[in-house]
Design a protein around this nucleic acid. Structure first.
Length: 460
RNA sequence: GCGACUAUAGUUCAAUGGUAGAACACUGGUUUGUGGUACCAGCUACGAGGGUUCGAUUCCCUCUAGUCGCCCCA
């Protein structure tokens, strides 16, 4: 028989000589848009562990959840993140709505949170206003490992307080998240880039320094010299890094206020025994940062510094820039995709939700209907039940129960359905007994308790 | 945006200028009411489009996608 089938198929294929016709019949196979991906059930345990960690820390540190739209006005990011930054200049997904609004998919979270803060009058809330979010961000960049066009971030923002102790607390909180996730060897890179009092002076110094060495700079940095000289410091081009090595450092040219702020930060970090690396090249790519900036790097990459897990800093003028009151703030964002990657690298355990210990097998139409009812009763009593109502064959159902490692199988066949009973089968011993419908919940609960005790005994 | 490499079942991999095999997974079965093992069967693939050729999954080109580096960052 199968041979015949095969030959007919082949003949059919040969008959369909015109390839275009074959293709016409076949529906288009869709796939994800470039740089966007599905996160499949088998990957979810990692994500779930991250989500749980974030919820716990948010709760412990009194941060409240905020969700903002994926679509925002383009100008929001142009004004805050900065129109000369790579993120805004070349990586935004931007489009016009039917109504003619210039919008974009959010490339990062902080400006949206601050926008919301202003829009909803959170200035009147007790300070600091502590908010956290998780969500997808979008950047039109070339995808590679740990870099996607749609990626997921969580972030914590503390708005309305300028004390450096909040910066420290935010770092402490971030490290707690890594700790809870079981991640080791993460280094804290730290710098201060000053405020509007001291930055202009420093910028002048920097410009004159680089102007004298203009020939040694790469093309991009020649542009940066005019637009954003600070960014030359974190250029990875070899000829630039050599020049940068001798360049004046931000922390040597801070005003008194910034210096005190930074000192307080370092002292408080020492107090909670958090090691850090002072990194004069760390400036971060976004325009709104002031004073404190920091990043978290997986340790192996400390010298190469290719991809950071997360980072943040202080943004004391952001609210003002977006039309609100002068309100200081400090925030931190972390890439969840990269956390998952790092968890896999470090062989961290994922989070596996509890599995049902009871399997409900059924035979025949009447039993199917009755099983639905039994299932609901068990579910309402908080008992997790697995089933496969689509199957009619006991053999496969038991096989599946076994695969799922269910300790108890409830069998309801034609006979039992008529008698309003089920067979309760203990999968370990293989013994079974008949019980009536109204005793199912009680009996199953009893058995589960016993099973739990046995498990504990075995572990001891 | 630039450069390098790759593209075969759901997954991991083969073979081949004459249209493709395996393993695992999945579905069903081994007298339609009893699991773990075993056995049998089924399902499903040459990324898309051009060119060279009698004939291309195989050689060449373009595109698309993926991976990696640069850049950027999360």
């Amino acid at each position: 028989m199968p041979r015949k089938k095969a030959t007919t198929k082949k003949n059919l294929k040969k008959a369909e000589k015109k390839p275009t016709e074959v293709k016409k019949r076949r529906a288009k196979q869709f796939q994800t848009v470039r740089g966007m991906r599905d996160i499949l059930p088998q990957d979810q345990p990692y994500w779930q562990r991250i989500r749980r960690a974030i919820d716990k820390i948010a709760n412990d540190y009194n941060y409240q959840r905020i969700d903002t739209p994926v679509v925002e006005f383009r100008e929001l990011f142009e004004r805050s993140t900065g129109s000369s930054t790579d993120i805004v200049e070349k990586e935004m997904f931007k489009f016009k709505t039917r109504g003619g609004d210039d919008v974009c998919l959010r490339p990062e979270g902080t400006p949206a949170v601050v926008r919301s803060y202003i829009q909803h009058g959170m200035q009147s809330y007790p300070k600091p206003v502590k908010l956290f979010y998780t969500g997808s961000m979008y950047r039109y960049d070339r995808p590679q490992e740990g870099r996607y066009r749609e990626f997921f971030q969580f972030g914590f923002e503390a708005i309305g307080e300028q004390d450096a102790i909040l910066d420290t607390q935010l770092i402490q909180l971030s490290l707690r998240v890594f700790k809870i996730l079981g991640l080791k060897n993460i280094s804290l890179q730290l710098n201060s880039i000053g405020c509007k009092e001291c930055r202009p002076n420093y910028n002048k110094l920097l410009v004159s320094y680089f102007n004298n060495r203009k020939k040694s700079l790469c093309m991009d940095c020649k542009k940066r010299l005019k637009k954003n000289p600070l960014r030359i410091l974190d250029c990875k081009e070899e000829k630039c890094t050599q020049v940068v090595h001798q360049a004046p450092q931000t922390i040597d040219h801070l005003c008194d206020e910034c210096k005190d702020h930074f000192t307080m930060l370092l002292e408080s970090l020492d107090e909670i025994e958090v090691p850090y690396t002072l990194n004069p090249k760390l400036v971060r790519g976004l325009d709104y940062y002031t004073k404190t900036v920091f990043e978290f790097w997986p340790k192996e990459e400390e010298d190469g510094a290719q991809s950071s897990l997360g980072g943040g800093g202080r943004y004391d003028y952001l609210s003002k820039i977006l039309g609100g009151n002068q309100t200081p703030g400090v925030g931190f964002a972390c890439g969840m995709d990269r956390l998952v990657l790092e968890m896999e690298r470090q062989n961290v355990k994922a989070y596996y939700p509890p599995m049902p210990k009871v399997y409900l097998a059924q035979l025949g139409d009447l039993a199917k209907k009755k099983s639905l009812k039994i299932f609901e009763e068990l579910e309402r009593s908080g008992i997790m039940v697995a089933e496969s109502f689509g199957r009619g064959n006991l053999c496969t159902q038991l096989r599946q129960a076994n695969q799922l490692d269910a300790g108890i199988v409830l069998i309801c066949g034609q006979r039992e359905a008529l008698d309003e009973t089920v067979i309760l089968k203990d999968m370990e011993s293989g013994s079974q007994e008949v019980i009536t419908f109204n005793k199912v919940v009680v009996e199953v609960k009893k058995r589960l308790k016993k099973m739990n005790k046995n498990v504990i005994r075995k572990m001891k």
